[in-house]
Amino acid sequence: MNSLNVSLPGLELKNPIMPASGCFGFGREFSQLYDLSKLGAIMIKATTLEPRFGNPTPRVAETSAGMLNAIGLQNPGLDKVVNEELVWLEQYDVPIIANVAGSQEEDYIAVARKISANRNVHALELNISCPNVKTGGMAFGTIPEIAKNLTKKVKEVSEVPVYVKLSPNVTNIVEMAKAAEDGGADGLTMINTLVGMRIDLKTGKPILANKSGGLSGPAIKPVALRMIYEVSQQVSLPIIGMGGIESAEDVIEYFYAGASAVAVGTANFIDPFVCPKIIDELPELIGKLGYENISECTGRSWNKFEKTSHYCS
């Protein structure tokens, strides 16, 4: 038995490691560095109905153990993503999770309908949590009723399972997760970035042209872990966890918190080979922990019935 096989709605994954949306483009750049077929899946960059240029630069700023970004959902638009990027990705043996974004309900529905019809798109990631756009994005992900209705409408048109990407910029994450569940979501991905800011000491003004941006990287890992820990006990949907993952140990920590797969984001910018490295290191760590398959790790932090004394290093 392969210790990394994971089975999720719409996704039969050879391993539970995938690059997070927005941190991997559409894979072309990383394909020069390693074989993309090695990945469990790829979460492609958010796709909107029309092309978007995104925000003015500077779009990134470094912070302690993290970074802020305000790219602004730059993408070539639905038609180009479907006709060029997804076609190009077909050469790889890797399922695609398409991140769907928009500024109004109709946009989400149109993108979801068309993009989910592609044969290599195995699931959608409903982006109701982008903090860097003026309309839409996070607005859909902070009011439970709106999140529920949007999920429901997207589910009606999607040909593949729908995972809702939750924003951490809410007071009650469980309430948002339940809203997505009530809307018919097949899974959750969490967390998107936390809204933050940095100020340039020379100018006295925010570094980012957009002023605020989304915080990612190791700095947000404890926030994500806490949210997954809470949500995984309250809803029955599988969770793809993300936020500052950069090692095999981080992956296990996310599984223990309640995740069933994980995505790697910011770490791809620091070490572009980080995903294949983690995939190579995981089997040994899982063996050392006494598991046969990584799925057995899910929810260990709160599962009362789980047998103990696995660790024997």
Binding site: C23, F24, E29, Q32, T57, R59, V60, A61, N69, P272
Partner: peptide
Amino acid sequence: ERMGCGIGACFA
């Protein structure tokens, strides 16, 4: 320009 990844993936 301020860069993130340096290889064209992050759109910074």
